[in-house]
Amino acid sequence: MEQGTVKWFNAEKGFGFIERENGDDVFVHFSAIQGDGFKSLDEGQAVTFDVEEGQRGPQAANVQKA
Protein backbone atom coordinates (compact mmCIF):
# COMPACT_ATOMS: atom_id res chain seq x y z
CA MET A 1 0.00 0.00 0.00
CA GLU A 2 1.04 3.56 -0.64
CA GLN A 3 0.65 6.57 1.60
CA GLY A 4 -0.54 9.93 0.40
CA THR A 5 -2.44 13.10 1.21
CA VAL A 6 -5.85 14.13 -0.08
CA LYS A 7 -5.28 17.05 -2.47
CA TRP A 8 -9.00 17.75 -2.86
CA PHE A 9 -12.26 15.83 -2.77
CA ASN A 10 -15.70 16.95 -3.96
CA ALA A 11 -18.27 15.08 -1.86
CA GLU A 12 -21.16 16.20 -4.10
CA LYS A 13 -19.52 14.73 -7.20
CA GLY A 14 -17.96 11.80 -5.33
CA PHE A 15 -14.37 12.09 -6.52
CA GLY A 16 -11.08 13.89 -6.02
CA PHE A 17 -7.33 13.43 -6.10
CA ILE A 18 -4.70 12.08 -3.73
CA GLU A 19 -1.11 13.32 -3.87
CA ARG A 20 1.25 10.35 -3.79
CA GLU A 21 4.55 10.42 -1.89
CA ASN A 22 6.39 10.73 -5.24
CA GLY A 23 4.45 13.94 -5.97
CA ASP A 24 2.12 12.52 -8.64
CA ASP A 25 -1.64 12.84 -8.29
CA VAL A 26 -3.96 9.85 -8.48
CA PHE A 27 -7.73 9.93 -9.06
CA VAL A 28 -9.98 8.67 -6.25
CA HIS A 29 -13.68 7.76 -6.53
CA PHE A 30 -15.88 7.54 -3.44
CA SER A 31 -16.53 3.84 -4.13
CA ALA A 32 -12.83 3.13 -3.40
CA ILE A 33 -13.08 4.49 0.17
CA GLN A 34 -13.22 1.72 2.77
CA GLY A 35 -15.53 1.95 5.79
CA ASP A 36 -19.18 2.38 6.66
CA GLY A 37 -21.41 5.41 6.34
CA PHE A 38 -20.90 8.46 4.13
CA LYS A 39 -17.76 8.01 2.08
CA SER A 40 -15.85 11.27 1.82
CA LEU A 41 -12.31 12.56 2.32
CA ASP A 42 -11.03 15.87 3.68
CA GLU A 43 -8.38 18.03 2.05
CA GLY A 44 -5.00 17.41 3.69
CA GLN A 45 -6.10 14.08 5.20
CA ALA A 46 -3.50 11.29 5.31
CA VAL A 47 -4.59 8.07 3.59
CA THR A 48 -3.23 4.69 2.54
CA PHE A 49 -4.27 3.13 -0.76
CA ASP A 50 -3.46 0.79 -3.61
CA VAL A 51 -3.12 1.99 -7.21
CA GLU A 52 -4.97 0.23 -10.02
CA GLU A 53 -5.09 0.98 -13.72
CA GLY A 54 -8.51 2.45 -14.51
CA GLN A 55 -10.16 3.41 -17.79
CA ARG A 56 -8.52 6.84 -17.71
CA GLY A 57 -5.22 5.92 -16.09
CA PRO A 58 -4.11 5.15 -12.54
CA GLN A 59 -6.69 5.40 -9.79
CA ALA A 60 -6.74 4.77 -6.05
CA ALA A 61 -8.32 1.60 -4.64
CA ASN A 62 -8.83 0.29 -1.09
CA VAL A 63 -8.50 3.82 0.30
CA GLN A 64 -8.25 3.92 4.10
CA LYS A 65 -7.97 6.95 6.34
CA ALA A 66 -4.57 6.82 8.06
Rank of each mutant, 00 (worst) to 15 (best):
E12C: 12
R56S: 09
A66I: 15
D50H: 12
F9S: 02
E53P: 11
F27V: 02
D42W: 14
Q3I: 12
G16N: 00
G4K: 01
F17Q: 04
F49H: 01
F38D: 08
F15N: 03
E43G: 14
V28E: 01
G23A: 11
H29F: 09
H29N: 03
G23T: 07
I18P: 00
V63M: 02
G16R: 00
Q59G: 04
H29V: 03
V6H: 01
Q55H: 12
F30M: 07
F30R: 11
N10L: 07
Q45L: 07
G44P: 02
D24H: 13
A32Y: 04
W8T: 03
A32P: 01
A46V: 11
N10D: 12
A66W: 10
D42N: 13
V47K: 00
N62E: 03
D36T: 13
S31T: 13
W8V: 03
R56H: 12
A11G: 10
E21W: 12
E12L: 14
N22R: 12
G35V: 10
G54F: 06
Q64C: 07
D36C: 10
R20K: 09
D42A: 14
D50P: 00
G37E: 06
K39Y: 06
E53D: 11
N22K: 13
L41M: 05
A66N: 12
S31R: 10
V28R: 00
V6Y: 00
F38K: 08
N62D: 04
T48V: 12
V26T: 04
G57K: 05
K13C: 08
D25A: 09
G35H: 08
M1L: 12
Q55S: 13
A11C: 11
G54S: 11
E53Y: 13
V47G: 00
S40H: 13
A46G: 09
F15Q: 03
A61D: 04
A60E: 00
A61K: 14
R56E: 06
E53M: 15
P58E: 06
A60S: 04
R56T: 07
F38R: 09
K65C: 08
G54L: 06
F49S: 00
T5I: 13
A46K: 15
E21L: 15
G14H: 03
V28Q: 00
E12I: 13
Q64V: 12
T5P: 02
E43F: 13
E2I: 13
W8D: 02
A60Q: 00
F9P: 01
G4N: 01
F30Y: 13
F27C: 03
E19Y: 15
A60Y: 01
E12H: 14
Q55F: 15
H29E: 03
F38G: 06
F15D: 01
F15M: 06
R56C: 08
G16S: 00
Q64F: 08
G57Q: 04
Q59Y: 14
Q59V: 11
E52H: 11
E53F: 13
V28D: 01
K39M: 07
R56K: 12
A46F: 11
E2V: 12
G44V: 02
M1G: 13
E53I: 15
K39L: 11
T48C: 08
F30V: 08
V26L: 14
I33A: 03
W8G: 02
E19L: 15
P58G: 05
A66G: 10
F38P: 10
E21K: 15
V28P: 01
A32E: 05
R20W: 10
N22S: 12
N10V: 05
F27R: 03
M1T: 14
G54H: 09
N22I: 12
